[in-house]
Amino acid sequence: MEVKDLAFFVLAASAVWTGWRVFRVDSMVRASFSLMLSFIAVGLIMLLLAAPYIGIATVFMMAVEMMVMALFMVMFMMNPAGLNPMWMVHQHRLAAATGFITFAALTIAVLLSDLPGNPVDPAKPVIHDLGVELLGNSMLIFETAGITLLATMVGTVILSSRSGRYGPADEGSLPPPLTPGGRPAGRVPEDEE
């Protein structure tokens, strides 16, 4: 029991720490993989919580997801490697206060409420039970998730494709101005100046 507690505290601390680092590192690739480490720590906590399938599946899914996330980070952020210090935030105090108040309120709620105590029997075949449930009583829910994912795929392709119903999606697009109401940012071709 001692080892399990120790493992939990180490994993919990690393989940929170790496989650925090996501918004503090300059390198975007490091930020994505920091989030991945947070997910991996949570997945390992789930292993401790007797949910091996969900835990390992979280690690698996998040490794793929954060890999894609890292590519998008490199695509859409200036300074993706963090070679210069960077601070791209707005309403920072409000955000920090909201985050902290959420944490404090949830913690108080957790500490004050009467939590249920009916732990999983370690000998229970939880993966088998989950499989039977997914393709048994809860098949409709499972299939709904599947259809939702299919709809997501179709929607993603439609949203992100360049050719739209009314011509190319990027036709006539201008970069946003650097100051409100100013000229579009970016390089202007010489013959237009």
Binding site: A12, A15, V16, G19, W20, V22, F23, M28, A31, S38, V42, I45, M69, F72, M73, F76, M77, M88, V89, H90, Q91, H92, L94, A95, A96, T98, G99, F100, T102, F103, L106, T107, V110
Partner: peptide
């Protein structure tokens, strides 16, 4: 622990300027 993760997540979602962040 989950409350802490949610709190950090709310901070990130509210404070970051970049869509991806």
């Amino acid at each position: 622990v989950s409350a802490a993760l949610i709190g950090i997540g709310i901070y990130g979602a509210l404070s970051q300027q970049s869509f991806v962040m």
